[in-house]
Design a protein around this nucleic acid. Structure first.
Length: 172
DNA sequence: GCCAACGTTGGC
DNA sequence: GCCAACGTTGGC
């Protein structure tokens, strides 16, 4: 394949570079162990109700991309492991369900407002990486997660940030 | 439980 | 379009 080895052919004319993302989840609701035990170790990532994150899910995040699986509101908050996107963005069905906590009365199947992707479990880190340790890694100084007041639940991650986190997480 | 930071809502 | 009020996030 032409281009970098970190690339997927996505159609006849273009090669889509693999990109990296960080997905936040509260482990008491859905942890990396839940993902590892899910059918096909795969789940849809529903319930994101923030426009910036929605735009990423709908437009930017593609099958083959890498996902850093982050446990927020945990004690301590950690990067728990890695996953991979297995399906491009598609409408989050819960927006149409009046009984769902994620229901959006203004969304219609013709005009969906909220999107989700599918992800599959890749690995659980030998040692979960605490947020406090991430803050000590100079390669991560500009990481979105570490910026003041950063709340985005789906965030872009650079290739160098990905590399630094994977290297540290695999180290016992 | 506290609270800073952020996103959304709605009156004007 | 402004912006105050409110609700939520998420680390500590």
């Amino acid at each position: 394949m032409a281009g970098s080895r970190n690339a997927l052919r996505c159609d006849k004319l273009s090669v889509m570079p693999v990109r990296y993302w960080l997905f936040k989840t509260e482990p008491s609701t859905f942890s990396i162990d839940h993902l590892a035990r899910a059918p096909n170790q795969t789940t849809f990532w529903n319930g994101v109700r923030n426009y910036q994150a929605r735009n990423l899910l709908r437009d930017q995040i593609h099958a083959g991309d890498g996902v850093i699986f982050y446990h927020s509101s945990a004690d301590p908050p950690t990067v728990a492991g890695l996953a991979e996107v297995t399906r491009d963005g598609y409408p989050d069905a819960t927006q149409f369900d009046p009984r769902s906590e994620y229901h959006d009365p203004d969304a219609t199947p013709d005009q969906p407002r909220w999107f989700m992707v599918d992800i599959r479990f890749k690995e659980k880190f030998a040692r979960p990486l605490p947020l406090s340790e991430l803050r000590t890694i100079s390669a991560l100084a500009d990481m979105v997660l570490l910026q003041r007041g950063s709340r985005l639940s789906v965030q872009p991650v650079t290739a160098s940030e990905w590399k630094a986190i994977v290297a540290r997480g695999r180290r016992a």
